[in-house]
Design a protein around this nucleic acid. Structure first.
Lengths: 217, 217
DNA sequence: ACGTCTGGATAGTGGCACTATCCAAGCATG
DNA sequence: CATGCTTGGATAGTGCCACTATCCAGACGT
């Protein structure tokens, strides 16, 4: 198919597709001549994944390129490639300006370490990207007057464990390795809004329950 | 305290504070004279909350203004004010361009309704902001080739229920109503990165467990 | 009284995801 | 084979948005 058809079938404008090609988010099509190129289903799927990462996941173009490169990297083991999304996709980046103080960060690190220990998770997680993100966030929270220790984090960690189980269960429905890797990236990103929306609904529900449900708002 | 001190104690530049004053995110200080104004602890706390919403939560300035106005609104009931964060803070907005088709949205709505029924939650949630966000996200997921029915969503809803319980438990630690309202907004936003970071750690952990832990990456 | 600081107004910056415009080379139709 | 539309590629521009830099006149401090 040509650019125009790729655009029509994906709902992404040709200008944007050209942009993604330029940025290396989408591999170039098969060249038919000096000014013609042909795209196939793999381009369509990749394009959908790109849109998912950028638009739904809100991750920057440069990062998306890295993630996709890792997805395509043949040298990685399956576990590595499944972990790419987890490792490489950035968190919503807590605190850009009022960077937490060194003490806050150190304290946060201690508490996260304590949490890992109580969960029986390897201490190596502490230096992984999501581990660092957690430390930064906990430090930021402390700076804002909401200190969290391992005790307070534990219920959330238990919740996260069950979310991860659900994630992995879903992944197992995909058979081919390609699909699994892609789904791992897509679902890691795309389930975030699902989970957060559900949490807010559950908050409203729980609040109504505890305050005696005053006609539930 | 003066602007400079407010800036020093909050770590936010005077220019940015002026910007927030202009935008109505921060109430003006007590005027001492034509060119002098004084700020107090409430300004400091509000400023921290503003930073939390905008910087950590990534919500737009205009929305932050609405949320804060609702927080300050004396006419709302306690439950309403606690719900402000849940209701008014926008979700990461799925799908800006390739808007889901009408069929996808209708199907998503049906599945979310089925989910609410199975959970025993009021159907009114379907039209609440987080409910709508959920429908949009599920529709977007379907469009990307990851259809979700009530069955698949249920485990995530169970997870969300427990997260909400943890949230409300934490809120009860705050005594004054003011603190509770503010903490409700702050924690709704600030716990999102915590939860997401923990989910990624848990994914890595669960993946290692299922694939036989190859020295855990 | 004089240099510094203050708050307010206005315009500018930087980052980033696109998007509009050109252009020369196909392709398709009469 | 002429002609008009389309294609992919290159380049520069747009729009949004959260700041940020600059001015300015009026306090304030010593």
């Amino acid at each position: 198919m040509r650019l125009a058809e790729l655009s029509a079938r994906s709902g992404v404008s040709t200008a944007t597709i050209k942009f993604y090609l330029r940025e290396g988010l989408l591999p170039p099509g098969r060249r038919l001549s000096a000014t013609q190129a042909e795209y196939d289903e793999t381009h369509l799927r990749r394009l959908r994944l790109v849109r998912a990462l950028i638009q739904v996941g809100g991750i920057p173009v440069a990062t998306a390129r890295e993630v996709l490169a890792a997805v395509d990297d043949e040298h990685l083991t399956r576990h590595d490639r499944l972990g790419v999304a987890v490792w490489a996709i950035p968190q919503p980046a807590p605190a850009r300006t009022r960077e937490a103080t060194a003490e806050e960060t150190a304290a946060a690190r201690t508490q996260v370490a304590a949490l890992l220990q109580r969960l029986g998770w390897p201490m190596a997680h502490l230096d992984s990207p999501p581990g660092q993100a957690l430390v930064r966030t906990v430090a930021a929270l402390a700076g804002l007057g909401y200190p969290h220790d391992a005790e307070r984090l534990l219920p959330y960690a238990r919740v996260a464990e069950r979310a991860a189980e659900a994630d992995l269960d879903l992944l197992e429905h995909f058979t081919s390795e390609e699909e699994q890797v892609e789904a791992s990236v897509a679902l890691t990103v795309l389930h975030e809004p699902v989970l957060l929306a559900l949490r807010r609904l559950a908050q409203a529900e729980e609040s109504a329950r505890r305050t005696g449900r005053p006609e539930d708002r």
